[in-house]
Simulated scan of single mutants.
Amino acid sequence: MKIAFYGSSLLSSYWNGAATYYRGLLRDLAGRGYDISFYEPDAFDRQQHRDIDPPDWVRSIVYPATAEGLSAVLAEAKAADIVVKANGVGVFDKELLEGIVEHSRADAMRVFWDVDAAATLEEMRADESHVVRRMLPSLDMILTYGGGPPVIDAYEGFGARRCIPVYNALDPDTHHPAEPDRRFAADLAFLGNRLPDREKRVEEFFLKAASALPARRFLIGGNGWESKAMAENVHHVGHVYTHQHNAFNSTPLAVLNVARDSMADIGFSPATRVFEAAGAAACLITDAWEGIETFLKPDEEVLVARDGQDVAEHVRALTPERASAIGRAALTRTLAENTYAHRGAQVDAIFKRTAQPERSAA
Rank of each mutant, 00 (worst) to 15 (best):
V347A: 09
I36W: 03
A67Y: 09
L70I: 07
E313I: 00
H175S: 05
V115P: 00
G90M: 02
S324I: 00
R316D: 07
V315W: 01
A79E: 15
T354N: 11
L207Q: 02
F184L: 04
L74K: 10
R194T: 01
E102D: 11
L303H: 06
H314F: 10
S12Q: 06
V111K: 01
V237I: 15
S227V: 04
D56N: 12
W289Q: 13
L191P: 03
K2M: 07
Y34W: 13
S360K: 15
E68H: 12
D51E: 07
Y145M: 05
D187I: 07
A178G: 11
D181V: 06
A154E: 10
T334I: 04
V166S: 01
R133L: 12
L303P: 00
E313S: 12
A169Y: 08
D187G: 03
A231Q: 14
A355M: 14
A65K: 11
A317Q: 14
D53R: 14
S138C: 13
D307C: 10
A185Q: 13
W57I: 10
V240K: 10
E102Q: 15
A160C: 01
R217N: 10
H342A: 11
G221V: 08
S60A: 10
D173F: 09
P320A: 08
N193F: 09
N16E: 08
D171Q: 06
V58D: 00
T251P: 10
V202K: 10
V234Y: 05
A212P: 02
K78Y: 09
T120E: 05
R110M: 02
Q309L: 13
S13R: 12
L29N: 03
E301L: 01
G221N: 08
E300A: 14
Y21M: 06
L284P: 01
A209Q: 01
D51F: 10
M124S: 11
R32A: 11
K78V: 13
G327T: 04
R161Q: 09
L70A: 06
P180C: 05
G88K: 04
A118N: 05
A325Y: 06
N246S: 14
